[in-house]
Write a protein that binds this DNA or RNA. Structure first.
Lengths: 219, 219
DNA sequence: CACAAATGCTACACCTGTGTAGTAATTACT
DNA sequence: AGTAATTACTACACAGGTGTAGCATTTGTG
């Protein structure tokens, strides 16, 4: 069936033969998995969750759909679930690295300010990790949503504990610690969004000094 | 191939005639428009923005798709745009009704607390209005997103002005008013989300007293 | 260099949603 | 009641995404 001495391919013309698509570089399965997850992440960050599909991911990675199904048996659901695991782990790692290993309890205000600064810088320098988390609480598969909600809830619980301790220790106002923890988380998340959408307008120092300013006037 | 006296078909008749769908009640165009917008809103609140389609809206309203196109020339885009106008207006109206007509500047803390209470009650009693705004900043048509962002920005500007005034008048800490305004908005929105997702856990008083508690300890 | 395993591609059948042309039922008015 | 206008329905052609079976190519190994 192949054309004999067929000139072939060369573009100029001639043959309207439905020439085959050039093969993408062959890549072992586990590397391909990472590539495909990266492609999905790129799409999410650039075009939003709504734009994600097996088709779009395959195109983004420069391969055809069957390749995706070959590596993620469960299709899109499987791929996104795995991606979620990966990103969740990266995010939690980055967060825990921003927390001080051995907190200096003698100066709580300074401790808070330092931690806040580290978190802000982390978010600022890892937009691919944080944008999908901070800028898309909805519109994504329900599973992703509930996963993030779980982490958030977890964080609120920890923060509530810290607050109860901190308020007692530092002598702050008497507050409903849980509600206050929610409020703080809301501010953190919102600052994160500002960082991602208008990084130049809200410099690190500006956000940090608002936090220290507030802390300083809370008595 | 049908069995003659075939039992089948349950219903008395027996005729396998592709019987016509019963006509939906005939309704003048302008009423139909409202009905369809209500149907769309119901879907958004119940199933999320992702579930909205001309087909789904028609089903929800108990009619067929051509009815939708007959009343909204531009199809889905047109319908959602009009719905957005309607909901935006309702939301802004409700907000402005929560604001005091002639603010009593002699007791700013009380003023804030009263206003907060009214806003909370407004959100609590109008979930169909506020859920799509507070619980879905993404995943909706970009147009809706930017519309809401515009209103939010607007609100921040107003709030920034109020803060500058209030801080001077009441004698609070020296703060970056714009950043502080963002922080307050973040808290308001987050409280709104808590109200909508866990109305029983976060009673009105609990949220209000956190606000007054914070205000009272800010010096 | 041959050949087997691993990897990628094409082609198809299916599903869901869009938008429209043509037709049928209902309603309002004489 | 008869009839015209209004409203709703059916049916089709199209577009884009899914998932899979079968074939083609590449690549590692003797």
């Amino acid at each position: 069936m192949t054309a004999y001495g067929s000139p072939v391919t060369a573009s100029p013309t001639g043959a309207e033969k439905p020439r085959r698509r050039p093969y993408a570089a062959r890549v072992p399965a586990d590397v391909r998995r990472e590539q495909l997850m990266d492609a999905a992440l790129t799409i999410i960050v650039r075009d939003g969750y709504a734009a994600v599909s097996v088709d779009a991911i395959a195109k983004e990675a420069g391969v055809t759909r069957p390749v995706v199904y070959g590596v993620f048996e469960g299709g899109l659901r499987d791929l996104l679930g795995t991606l979620l695991d990966r990103q969740q782990e990266r995010a939690l790692t980055q967060l825990s690295e921003a927390l001080p290993p051995e907190p200096d309890l003698s100066d709580p205000d300074r401790l808070v300010a330092e931690t806040a600064r580290k978190m802000i810088e982390t978010v600022r320098s890892n937009p691919m990790v944080w944008q999908p988390i901070l800028l898309a609480p909805v519109g994504m598969p329900a599973e992703a949503r509930s996963r993030i909600d779980g982490d958030r809830e977890n964080f609120v619980v920890q923060l509530t504990g810290l607050l109860e301790l901190g308020l007692a220790l530092r002598g702050g106002p008497v507050l409903d610690a849980e509600v206050a923890a929610h409020a703080i988380l809301a501010i953190l998340e919102h600052f994160g969004r500002l960082l991602l959408t208008e990084p130049d307008r809200f410099e690190t120092d500006r956000l940090v000094s608002t936090i220290t300013g507030l802390l300083g006037s809370l008595k």
